[in-house]
């Protein structure tokens, strides 16, 4: 009872003094202000559709380019994942191995973990193939004996397993030499690596572009609302209060730009899906294009919003200071 009484007396005093606010009131009004600032920033963007659309499109294009390149690189990477089949390990057997030993070796190879299949190529078969394919067949006639060894072609399940398999196989008896042809895969890997770095560089350059575009738009907005800023400062608006609507505008520009970029990328995906499927069919591949996905859209929105916010922050920091009173 006593507590309630003193509380009500407190609030009465507060009312009488007129300008003391409770913490809860302050928080509520702070939240309300954030909400109303967000809606008013959105309506301001929509009220000048042409100017806003221009800014949003520039942001969208700047986000679409690196994102499209990124998706391209990712798709190629997935495609390269499907070509594990082409990484083969050639296992050359020591000369003069007996038939039974070869059988035993074949079984050992098949028993290794990570091996998909093993194919035996006899020395004679190898010579026949060489004769047929190289065109130097007649040269072999001058040799006393077949220079080629018996060999096995081992197919690893995964390219990433191949290197380990090679060391395992090297330790086996009867094995003379092991060769792994990963060169073209490594080239592709290097290419993809370069692609990813290109995405980063392009993304950084265009991200800087977005910051400048948003910064310029916010600078114009600050100039056109000079009177309002002056009055707000004179009646006791804090710097944060003055900054807030501009930061929201920048954030929203980034978000809208990212949304348009997501729409562009999805459209691009649909447009390419048909030809890609046709191409995959010709190569008897199961490959089909992977789009942005929900995670990608969310990431794009986050990047857009952040970059927009940074642009607005820089513009606000630079231009608000010039408006008197400080």
């Amino acid at each position: 009872m006593a507590a309630t009484n003193s509380k009500s007396r407190n609030s009465a005093q507060r009312g009488a003094r007129g300008h003391v606010l409770s913490r809860l009131d302050r928080w509520r009004s702070y939240r309300d202000h954030h909400r109303s600032t967000l809606t008013s920033s959105a309506t301001k963007i929509l009220r000048e559709p042409l100017q806003s659309l221009l800014t949003i499109l520039v942001i969208a294009i700047a986000l679409t380019l690196p994102a499209a390149l990124y998706l391209g690189v990712e798709n190629i990477r997935q495609l390269s994942g499907g070509v594990d089949a082409s990484a083969q390990i050639s296992v050359f057997v020591k000369k003069g191995a007996r038939e039974s030993a070869l059988d035993a070796l074949s079984e050992t190879l098949e028993g290794l973990s990570g091996v998909a299949s093993v194919r035996y190529i006899s020395a004679q078969a190898a010579v026949d193939e060489f004769e047929a394919l190289s065109g130097f067949g007649s040269a072999l006639q001058y040799l006393d004996e077949n220079p080629l060894p018996d060999s096995f072609l081992v197919q690893p399940l995964l390219v990433s397993n191949a290197e380990r398999l090679v060391t395992d196989i090297r330790q086996l008896n009867l094995v003379d030499d092991v060769q792994l042809d990963l060169e073209w895969l490594q080239r592709l890997d290097a290419l993809l690596d370069m692609g990813r770095k290109l995405v980063l560089a392009l993304g950084a350059a265009l991200g800087l572009g977005v910051i400048l575009v948003v910064g310029n738009t916010i600078r114009l907005a600050i100039q056109s609302r000079r009177d309002e800023i002056t009055v707000v400062k004179l009646v006791g608006g804090t710097d944060a209060y003055v900054r807030r609507p501009f930061l929201y505008s920048g954030f929203l520009f980034g978000i809208f730009g990212a949304l348009v970029a997501a729409i562009l990328l999805t459209t691009l995906g649909f447009w390419l899906a048909g030809p890609v499927d046709k191409l995959a069919l010709l190569y008897r591949s199961q490959f089909s294009i992977t789009g942005l996905g929900l995670g990608g859209v969310v990431t794009l929105l986050l990047i857009g919003g952040t970059v927009g916010l940074i642009g607005a922050w820089l513009a606000v920091g630079q231009h608000l200071r010039k408006i008197k009173p400080r």
């Binding site: 606010l21 302050r26 309300d32 202000h33 309002e228 707000v232 009646v235 006791g236 804090t238 209060y241």
Partner: peptide
Amino acid sequence: LFDRSVYDNVALPLQVAGYSH
């Protein structure tokens, strides 16, 4: 400020100071 009503003009110092609606 001519971009808002008389009411909103007068309300500005209160909004800035964080008064409730």
